[in-house]
């Protein structure tokens, strides 16, 4: 909202935009069957490949990255803790459990029904997490993410057990480990809802910034704290459920990107939201491209690459901060 300060220069924006564009084009070009970009328009086969596989895959990476980064940002705002994100707060695991149960009970349900159920489960799981997180003492900020990780682990254990009994472990691993290689036209379009959620976050950006100041400051400024909490929860749950159902969970995006952006530009969500979304999209695109190139022509799932990259970034953030205080 306050435009006079904290706006990064036009150049920074241009360079970032250019970087994202380069990644986007790279993602279109890299793959098992070569796609010479200069011939796309003349070669119908290449055109087909682009439209059916590469473009959907690239869009999916951008949407997932941007969405999960924003979901992380909102989780950190709602829990007032910098080390929380959907993958470490039981959100993703609840979504996995939800889609597993609906797959067990109604195997024939449409994808959007499954997504809806996964979203509902994520909502419940995250609400329980937040209710508990607010009871943990604020002087010990590391307890909250720790609680979240183990809480997610317990829900994950239930899901694994259920999947094991029903011989669905294969499916579960598809949902728990993000991978874009299966993304084709006609199978990823629901992900555009994530973009819608990012737009909703943009609309309530100022309120999110105020939420981070705490309950009392929010009420003092006339914000309906409980309702904003619900809106935030819905955004997080929907984005996470979409990611889990369509490509599988990608860890650490929601953690690393908002933290780095906060370091560089502060926490005024109106000013940082675009950067967080772009950063998430760029990071996931880059990891997906790396996953395609590391062991060419085989692919390494983006979830695995991100586990390594994001884990290292998280530890760096942790000890950087630990060194300060």
């Amino acid at each position: 909202m306050i435009s006079a300060v904290s706006k990064p220069s036009l150049w920074t924006g241009l360079i970032a935009g250019l970087g994202l564009a380069v990644l986007f084009v790279l993602s279109l070009a890299v793959g098992v069957s070569p796609l010479p970009l200069n011939k796309v328009l003349s070669d119908p086969e290449a055109m087909q490949l682009l439209a059916v596989s590469r473009l959907p895959r690239t869009f999916a990476a951008v949407l997932c990255g941007a969405g999960l980064a924003i979901a992380g940002l909102i989780m950190q705002t709602l829990s007032r803790n910098r080390f929380v994100e959907p993958a470490t707060a039981g959100t993703a695991q609840s979504a996995e459990l939800g889609i597993l149960l609906v797959t067990l009970l109604f195997p024939a349900a449409a994808l959007w029904v499954k997504t809806l159920v996964a979203g509902g489960a994520a909502l419940v799981g995250t609400s329980v997490f937040l209710a508990t997180a607010h009871r943990l003492p604020p002087q010990q900020p590391f307890l909250v993410p720790l609680f979240g990780i183990v809480y997610g682990g317990v829900i994950g254990a239930v899901a694994t057990f259920a999947a094991w009994q029903a011989d669905l472990l294969q499916f579960l691993s598809v949902w728990t480990n993000g991978e874009f290689s299966g993304v084709l036209r006609g199978r990823y379009e629901l992900l555009w809802i994530a973009a819608l959620m990012v737009a909703v976050a943009w609309i309530v950006a100022d309120r999110l910034t105020i939420m981070a100041l705490g309950r009392e400051a929010s009420i003092g400024l006339g914000i309906d704290y409980a309702r904003m909490m619900q809106i935030g929860l819905v955004i997080v749950s929907v984005i996470t459920a979409l990611a889990v159902v369509i490509v599988g969970m990608i860890p650490f995006v929601g953690l690393a990107v908002p933290n780095i952006v906060s370091r560089l530009m502060g926490d005024n969500v109106r000013g940082t939201l675009g950067w967080v979304a772009a950063g998430g999209a760029g990071l996931v695109l880059a990891c997906d491209i790396a996953g395609r190139l590391l062991r060419y022509p085989y692919e390494i799932p983006v979830g695995t690459v991100m586990g390594v990259v994001g884990g290292a970034v998280f530890l760096w953030l942790l000890f950087r901060r630990g060194g300060h205080g």
Binding site: R82, S262, G266, D267
Partner: peptide, 8 residues
């Protein structure tokens, strides 16, 4: 806890 500037 937020990183906000004074004027913000």
């Amino acid at each position: 806890a937020s990183r906000l500037r004074v004027r913000e």
